[in-house]
Nucleic acid binder design. Sequence first.
RNA 1: GCGAAAGUGGCGGAAUUGGCAGACGCGCUGGACUUAGGAUCCAGUGGCCCACAGCCGUGCGGGUUCGAGUCCCGCCUUUCGCACCA
Length: 849
Amino acid sequence: MTQYRPDEIEERWQKRWAEAKVAEVDVAAPGSKFYMLNMFPYPSGDLHVGHGRNYILGDVLYRFFRMQGRVSLNPMGWDAFGLPAENAAIKRGIHPREWTLGNINRMKEQFRRWGILYDWSKELASCDPDYYRWNQWLFLRLYERGLAYRGKAPVNWCPQDRTVLANEQVIDGRCERCGAEVIQKELEQWFFRITEYADRLDAGLDELHEWPEKVRAMQRNWIGRSVGADVEFPVPALGHPLRVFTTRPDTIFGATFMVVAPEHPDVPALIAGHPDRGAIEQWIAGVRNQSALERQESGKEGRFTGQSAINPFTGNEIPIWLGNFVLMQYGTGAIMSVPAHDQRDFEFARQYGLPIRVVIQPAGAEPVSPDDLAEAFTSKDESAVIVDSGLISGLPVPEAIERISEEVERRGIGTKTVRYRLRDWLISRQRYWGTPIPMIYCQRCGMVPVPEGDLPVELPIDVPFTGREGNPLAKQEAFVSVDCPSCGGAARRETDTMDTFVDSSCYYARFISAHDDTKIFEKKLVDRWLPVDQYIGGIEHAILHLLYARFIARAMHDLGLLAHEEPFRRLFNQAMITKEGYRDPSANMAWVPLDEVEWRDGKPWRGATELIPEVGKMSKSRFNTVAPDDLIERYGADTQRVYTLFIAPPEKEAAWSDEGVIGAYRFLGRVWHLGQQILAAAEHPSAREAPRAVLRKTHQTIDAVTRRFERFEFNTAVSALMELSNVLGEHVPGHAAALRGPYLILLQMLHPFAPHMTEQSWQLFGEEGFILTSKWPVADPSLMEEETVTIVVQVNGKLRGQIEVPNPPAEEAVMAAVQKNERVQSWVAGKQVLKTIYVPGKLVNVVVR
RNA sequence: GCGAAAGUGGCGGAAUUGGCAGACGCGCUGGACUUAGGAUCCAGUGGCCCACAGCCGUGCGGGUUCGAGUCCCGCCUUUCGCACCA
């Protein structure tokens, strides 16, 4: 009997799949299409088993749908531009391109060893001019439409990476990548006008039923749609009114002061006559220089401008203050403050002794004195009622909002407004390793787009990396200096490159026309293949990538390039794999490399310190990665695949266990041995029909596995296959030959999980052709039928007897049997039978009264 | 503070619509085969109890129901997002 030897079979099958190009699909082939896509990775180098989860999951799904007979596409590419390549160049003197291409090769090899089938004929890399020329082309189209523009704006500047960041890349006031504190800088930069699509991006979320609710909520939150009104407050000293945005116009009678952002353009005029103007200007400068983080941490601070506005509804003069908590980037940069009904305004009013006026109360409550308020009363449902507010007094809040908004519009002092938290997408990066922005600055003609025929604007390769003086592109005179395409005079190229999220915003469509050098994509084909049917990637892209891609899809739709507006029909976010490790509580470096852990009395030590066991995300910096190479060498890729899916539901974090792997290996070994026994016996003439119990289990398993595939419950799908193999194993003695059919069905269902092992068995035992072309087995319920089943009867929850009924036990048949059975009947006699509940194969509950 | 999700053995985790709680696997215990076992195979494994019987068990407290891990009400805990957005 031959042993299960993954090392002998996997290499052979991988080679064969590659030679036969089994995953290459003709995108024009007829049939029902299935587009499976893993988010294309940044080629950072070696992959560990934690990364494997993502790709194995995609491959399992791809193989499943392929077996279902769908024309399936599973492409792969590389998000190959970005900072780490440049940093590696600075640190180790390797060109970013070389570093990137080397990593790509290593990762491709890893995918091959995992047995993942990608259609490599459609491979693309964002750092390849054949790819980024279309990014540049798209940029020019957006520019023509006014969706790409250059503007001066306060931007997030990372002093460590020496580049600007998009708002989405600033986490808690720090650079997403390096963690340095982000500062504000006023710079000329390129933007994409994503705000123009805010409403469509927001509304589209409602249709994404097959996206995780969490991601939709995060995007909704980020877009931050809020409905309210703009209202003008006259300011005698200015000669023009100040405009505020509020979501609570119903509280306007309670507006007792105004606060404007220190950056507001009217501030100089407001403080012009202030006796202490110098001090205020100094304070403003201080606030402006603060990082976003410092500004938040310094608490609420303000200064009185010395000027007043008129509350248009009460007619009262209200003081105008400056406040560090009012943001110039949101709304109008000025707010009306209603301390009684907004917590921030309340705190500010208490801090500076500003007046508070109560205009909303719980319905039927006694009037409240402002002095007794412990916090702002912010309820806005029907139970909150307006008081002391002229024409809206007595109305519940929702109605009051409607009434007062109409009144504002009627008087011509404002409008109903929808505002978004979302701001335009800053795409310029002062970095080398990215897509050059195809623009030229001419002294005579101004800003001139690179003509389409001159694309791509190629990134010069021969560039020195010192890491000291900013963007190395800017010092490449051969690149920068150019003739103006318009007048032919001397001009200079834009040296900013694009944010890499631009690269990843259309790649999924480009796969369909990956090597077309005449157009960005073939509309007929992308319209057939989009949207992506199943998109898989990490939750870390919930906002950035997925929002940008949705935006660009809509922009491309409006340019007539695509029929679809939503690029990804179904989204799944797999969670990461963690691994236990050790932490040294006395050292700066939290995690300790495993080979530095010594053991004393069964406890982990390092030096004189006892280490603390800890579980965390697998990463090189934590020294807790598991390299797939050793694992595959010992147990095979199929073992890793099965274990990875069995370990936990894929959306849940899972802790890697070296012992757990063995369970998957044993399972595959058992299946292998079953094959040895069953398929050898099948040649004997004594083969007869399999035992009923085996047939039933087989069909139950087909049903269970199919259902679980649809619900992404791969861990229980694998366990169902384990159960089936256990049942087969029990019946091998005496029935080996008869188990052939069920065994082959088991192999088929196992195939997406352990493709090498199952193909080998298939071939070994004489079945012709690739299992990949066969269809998933369909359960035939008639095979499951026993003639009768015995069921246990409970009457009102108490065991009262057993009855025999025909299989499958229909409700009526059960009732009839209950009536006929004397023992049971005696418990039911004279009572009204309310209902019976059949528990499959087991028992019946008869509910009586 | 706001929003979302989740609490089940020593561990990862099962349990269609309320219907035998703990499937499957790891670990552990015992055995077989072995020069050896960190290989393989077999048996056992929620707790109390020598064992049968029995009792107790799904974060806590109530409720609905013949029957609740599942439904309802009120707590507690954890994780993850967002966070001066007017």
